[in-house]
């Protein structure tokens, strides 16, 4: 397992909101260590047996919290993320629609403070049998030795489900987030899986747009010895919109499904055509 383990003790920022409270219940039911909630102005209250604080600083005085999951709405997410980065080691940002300029600042601040950031716009992270910091349905995952990293939320569930229903399971599963700017990248997560004794093989789920998959392929070629499988969504999608000349200059032809599949195959990654191919590939390992 990587990043989320028995030592992860999390607080929920935005615990009193609709999504925050719903998913706090789900995370607790899954067995996740949720030790505090934070909603400014609601300190002292309690929700589902979790004590609420006005700030992370305050929560830290009374608990041994070291991680946060953020459900705060986009206009306030930068503030929440900075607060978490300042005080904690791991921050999972579930919030969608955070302005890209805010995300660039959040990532730079996280880098300086050496805080691990997952997301934004992610389903989160789950280590089956240990806990989940996220919004994924827990029952489709099962303890096992396949590490999954994905850019897409629901597509991750599809693959986890395929693996689980074929009698296998996952070591840890991470959604890196669907936004242009995210914290952990494919390469960061693959590196962790490579070093993780519980992970036997990895599945990388990508989609069209950007060059994250091409860069991951470069990384795999140089640094990964365990088997890697991949799926790229969007083979039949029409070409995306152009971002001026600047977009073409920095992407250098990357971004299409063909470009990604070619790069991955060059790195000896087995690329699946459809989700049901993955369990077959895993059985043959």
């Amino acid at each position: 397992m990587i990043i989320l383990d028995e030592n992860t003790r999390c607080l929920v920022q935005g615990i009193t909101g609709k999504q925050g409270s719903f998913h706090t219940r789900q995370m607790l039911e899954y067995g996740t260590k949720i030790v505090a909630g934070v909603t400014p102005g609601k300190g002292g209250q309690e929700l589902l047996g979790v004590k609420i604080y006005n700030s992370i600083e305050e929560a830290k005085e009374e608990t041994d919290v070291n991680a946060s999951i953020i459900f705060v709405p986009a206009p306030f997410a930068k503030d929440a993320a900075y607060e978490a980065i300042k005080h904690l080691d791991l921050v999972v940002i579930i919030t969608e629609h955070i302005p890209v300029h805010d995300s660039m600042q959040i990532m730079e601040y996280g880098k300086r403070m050496k805080t691990t950031i997952i997301g934004p716009n992610t389903p989160g992270i789950i280590t089956p049998g240990v806990g989940k910091l996220g919004i994924m349905p827990g029952h489709i995952f099962q303890e096992g030795d396949i590490g999954i990293v994905s850019r897409s939320g629901t597509l991750t569930y599809e693959f986890a489900h395929q693996i689980t229903s074929n009698g296998m399971g996952q070591s840890t599963c991470i959604g890196i987030g669907g936004d242009p700017i995210v914290g952990l990248t494919f390469a960061d997560v693959l590196k962790e899986f490579e070093e993780d004794k519980d992970t036997r093989a990895m599945l990388m789920i990508g989609e069209i747009g950007g060059d994250a998959e091409e860069r991951a392929a470069e990384y795999i070629k140089e640094h990964i010895s365990k088997p890697v499988m991949a799926f790229i969504a969007g083979r039949t999608a029409p070409p995306g919109k152009r971002m001026g000349h600047a977009g073409a200059i920095i992407e250098r032809g990357a971004g299409t499904a063909e470009s990604k599949i070619r790069a991955l195959e060059k790195a000896d990654v087995q690329v699946a055509e459809k989700p049901s191919d993955i369990p077959e590939m895993l059985k043959e390992l």
């Binding site: 939320g153 789920i205 039949t236």
Partner: peptide
Amino acid sequence: NGAGLTLTAMDLIKLQGGEPATFLDIGG
């Protein structure tokens, strides 16, 4: 629901010999 899953559904339609008429992602 979700761009990646919807794109995959389109890919599967094509793989089975059909042609998608829309991509519509209802989000989360």
